[in-house]
Design a protein around this nucleic acid. Structure first.
Lengths: 202, 202
DNA sequence: TGTACATCAGTGAACGCGCGTTCACTGATGTAC
DNA sequence: TGTACATCAGTGAACGCGCGTTCACTGATGTAC
């Protein structure tokens, strides 16, 4: 059976689609959800509105793609932790430190804040958020159980939730105006110490 | 000197202004920031667009009023803790439990999520948020110093920030879809235990 | 290698709609005399 | 108590604008023969 069908998406198209997503993310960080229009994304990506809509016909399509992108990015991240071969205590602290640093980045925290707000009223966002935090908690719970082999799974999951709360919540004290209310390094040390207490380290 | 000036705002007007703010808050909880239009607020408050604008001429005016309302509500809350006469340990745990319960409420957490997202891109919101969290941390730091009189103020403020992170972050695990991923009571107990560890209680 | 054609990628104009804002207006309430 | 008037409260229509979406179209790329 001879078919004349093409190869599907071409290189040029794939690049444009990815560039559009990156532009949308940057726009969300810079200007916020209220400014996230298809025209704005197209302009930032250096393309025309009609062309953007060739890849993402509706705004909802664009948002779903953006959410999926985040989901896979964080899934990849979580799998990296598992692959790490160091002592579980060190791994936990490395994860905590890494997340703290990421959230201390302007862009890092803003994306999460937008995601939280979106999840409250958008079913797509809620689904992705549950997925992200689910795998996040799962990964942390695994490490906690490695550290204390007698820790029941249920309990480890609860502790993991507290771990995540601590880190995500710490993004709220980064300061929005001119200067942050805290020395970032000191806050990090205090957060990490709380994590140690939580995990029963030292 | 005889003046013919009136008494300023009248009862009817004051009620309308407050009703409009309450409607705006409810709309924000129900539908989110994207649906917060002047027309929507007016409809929910049972008034006409023009009348709403008699009290809040621009959307920014309405938002500022809403933010100020939150600020004074939380300032009042914080002052209530100070007035409490029980042991500092009990007071801290009562505050933690109260906040957890408040954030476990659908409306309670949604308002904060919207505020966080707003603060990232709106200077007015950022200012109010810094104010709210500032007084929140201050109140917690005071209690922590009462519990441990040797705790330096700087350190108490850092611990207070971690305390706040823990509680605010816990709102992220309430679950957005059908059912929450955790038994709420168990999560609360785990969070409170972490608070105890943080404050050095027991 | 050349040609015909299907698919991929991108263009440009138009649409209806809800938005924030402006403004001239009317009715209700309170107060000075 | 009555009247005149200032202020408060509320109405209704109109505006220009940016939005998401639709659609007919053109040019670029790849493939079958």
């Amino acid at each position: 059976m001879s078919t004349r069908k093409g190869t599907g998406v071409q290189k040029r198209g794939k690049q444009s689609a990815v560039a559009a997503l990156a532009a949308a993310e940057q726009l969300l960080i810079d200007k916020g959800w209220a400014a996230l229009s298809l025209r704005g994304v197209a302009t930032m990506a250096g393309m025309r509105l009609g062309n953007l809509q060739y890849y993402y016909p509706t705004k909802r399509d664009l948002l779903r793609a953006l959410l999926t992108r985040w989901e896979s990015q964080y899934a990849e991240r979580a799998s990296t932790w598992e692959a790490d071969k160091t002592k579980p205590e060190d791994r936990l602290m490395a994860v905590a430190g890494g997340f703290f640093d990421d959230l201390a980045t302007p862009g890092g925290s803003v994306l999460f804040w937008e995601l939280w707000a979106m999840a409250a009223h958008d079913e797509d966002a809620a689904e992705i958020m549950n997925s992200i935090y689910g795998s996040y908690r799962q990964a942390v719970a695994d490490v906690l159980m490695e550290i204390d082999s007698k820790l029941p799974r249920k309990r480890a999951e609860l502790k993991a939730a507290v771990f995540v709360s601590l880190l995500e919540g710490s993004s709220l004290h980064a300061g929005y105006g001119k200067q942050p209310p805290f020395n970032r390094a000191l806050l990090k040390e205090e957060v990490l110490q709380a994590v140690r207490g939580l995990a029963g380290i030292r």
